[in-house]
Design a protein around this nucleic acid. Structure first.
Lengths: 339, 339
DNA sequence: TCACGTCGTTGAGACGATTCAAAAGAATCT
DNA sequence: AGATTCTTTTGAATCGTCTCAACGACGTGA
């Protein structure tokens, strides 16, 4: 409660509050002697600037909200770190919020961030269509979609998920697989839908020779991946797919665990390829093949776009940046023996 | 920029600003008719409460800062989730900051949080002794140490790391290992120092029969674990330890990868045990034995203590909560054959 | 009719910093 | 010395909300 304010500092230094403020913000216009006196007073009182009052007066905040689908997915942590590294250079702060794939939680976080009058919001939305976001933007909080393409009404940074799915599919087909399962999540998540479309197009290109199964989980977690894996492992061998393309690496890890616990060999009995190429993918029981996304670059670019918009709101034109994914081949999808 | 304020709402609803504020905060004391009129005005204008002004006026914030050593370590993400779940119930918000083991970054985050006048700070400090934290607390921002025992000047939540180290050591010794390496980090990090002390005491209890090597990295990351692993793998077999106790699971995963890439078999050539029991430990190439900490409970309890202190600053007495770690045995430290 | 409570509403200060026009002081030039 | 310019410092207004004493309207009971 011993929080000092500018007034107390002014009193102790025998200057006006205006001068203290000047020392804090434009020290060069204050005479050295006065400046020194003020600094001493600050030190003696243990004065710490009140950013809240500052923000209220100045009308703009130095923090950016980042709302992600799942904090426990290292993919998003990496995106966040990318964003934070840029924010650091502009002495802003990133506050990380977890929607956990739940529209309600997402909504609450957005409300909170808007009430805090954050500088802007970076978000991987739970649902494709969200009027909230547009209203939010209309009311004056810039929004940048992350890992999700925008319709033109706002900026966005994304990776071509359709292409990623296609690459994964082509890879598995090229490896000789003819019965492939897409281990996915809610189609309402754009990324999932696109990855599905991608692999479907690769399958279609194989001219009916390849069969595509699909399983869907409510969330893209390790646990769900494991659950689906259990079900797949329980199938008779001739009904079982020979390869699985998981919507992300978390699911792939769970799926892999289920294979192991049922004595199925990866990639011999069943090949697996994940998505995101999180660091743990390489350290898995069987190192996971994956579709790599430029995780940190995604975060970096998103906040760059945001800062650009904030800096020049007038002449800013919304942009949609799209990156290309890469195929990373590891043991989990190693060459399949044609039997 | 279309941000409306209470005054505009008041004008449109033809009431005073005081009444609008009442509608927002104590709707029951406002007559239904007026209340309705105000709500309509709010909706029509798209008014969103300015939490910044609110906070300035009320003098206290609804956000809590959580400063962790490494956001990319899922251990801390779990702690954060525990904290957040409690914060949610008290409609507060947790902002996650990453010191990345760097005292400078930690310092900057603390400054920022103090300037924002957060309700309190939960922190896993980089260094044991930190005058900053005490000054911070003295100036009125409550601090709770997380995963790190306090000296009595503040609240803390921790797990008995000494015991954890001892359990890990006893386990390896019991499995027949006589040459054990502690793969650690800076001794300035209390957790690391304690885990080391723990295993050392287990080794001492073995009466000279066991040899304890120690290697130290600047940070507790996968990369550092791998680097140390590379060096260990390069040693001639008779100088190489037969078991490694890693200061956390991240290092253990890196260490494990190094073993694999050098063709050393785990646990036959070298057993590994980690610390934290993060979810990825079980999914590793060789499922990792680990010392489990109650991760979410740690975060939950920390914020409970903080809220307690904030609620009743007067009669609050600082408490130090200590939990017990558990041994989780998996394949990476399976029985060693006596040769 | 008057005094008195009750209920709803009002409006004037805070809260702590920034900003900026204007005043005060110092330095320079005639 | 007096006029002019430049440098410092001042203090009042402002940002958006909350709080609380005071006020008006209304009904009740005497």
């Amino acid at each position: 409660m011993a929080t000092r304010n500018i007034k107390e500092v002014a009193q102790l230094a025998r200057v006006s509050v205006g001068t203290v403020s000047n020392v804090l913000n434009r020290p060069e216009i204050v005479s050295p002697a006065t400046r020194e006196r003020v600094f001493e007073a600050i030190k003696k009182l243990g004065f710490v600037r009140n950013e809240v009052a500052r923000h209220l007066r100045m009308g703009r905040s130095r923090t950016v909200g980042l709302v992600v689908l799942d904090v426990s997915n290292p993919f998003f942590v990496d995106v966040a770190q990318g964003a934070e590294s840029v924010a650091d250079d502009h002495d802003s702060m990133v506050v990380l919020c977890n929607s956990a794939g739940d529209a309600g939680r997402e909504r609450r976080h957005l409300d909170q961030l808007e009430q805090q009058r954050v500088m802007g919001i970076l978000i991987t939305p739970v649902e494709m269509e969200s009027p909230w976001l547009e209203e939010l933007a209309a009311r004056g909080t810039p929004v940048v979609l992350v890992d999700s393409p925008a319709t033109g009404l706002q900026c966005s940074v994304a990776v071509d998920d359709r292409l990623g799915g296609q690459i994964a599919g082509a890879h598995l087909i090229e490896r000789g697989h003819r019965r492939i399962m897409f281990v996915g999540g809610p189609q309402s998540i754009k990324q999932v839908a696109d990855r599905h479309t991608g692999i479907a197009s690769a399958v279609a290109a194989a001219d009916g020779a390849v069969e595509l199964l699909t399983s869907t989980a409510p969330t893209l977690t390790v646990a769900e991946g494991r659950a689906i894996g259990e079900r797949v492992a329980a199938l008779p061998a001739d009904e079982r797919p020979t390869a699985a393309f998981c919507a992300n690496d978390m699911m792939a890890l769970g799926f892999l665990q289920a294979m192991a616990s049922h004595g199925l060999r990866v990639p011999d009995d069943l090949a697996i390829i994940g998505y995101d190429d999180i660091d743990f993918a390489a350290a898995a029981a069987v190192p996971l093949s994956s579709i790599r996304q430029p995780r940190e670059l995604l975060g970096r670019t998103a906040i760059d776009l945001l800062l650009e918009e904030v800096a020049e709101p007038e002449q800013h034109r919304h942009r949609q940046v799209i990156f290309q994914p890469d195929l990373v081949i590891r043991e989990s999808s190693a060459p399949r023996r044609t039997h």
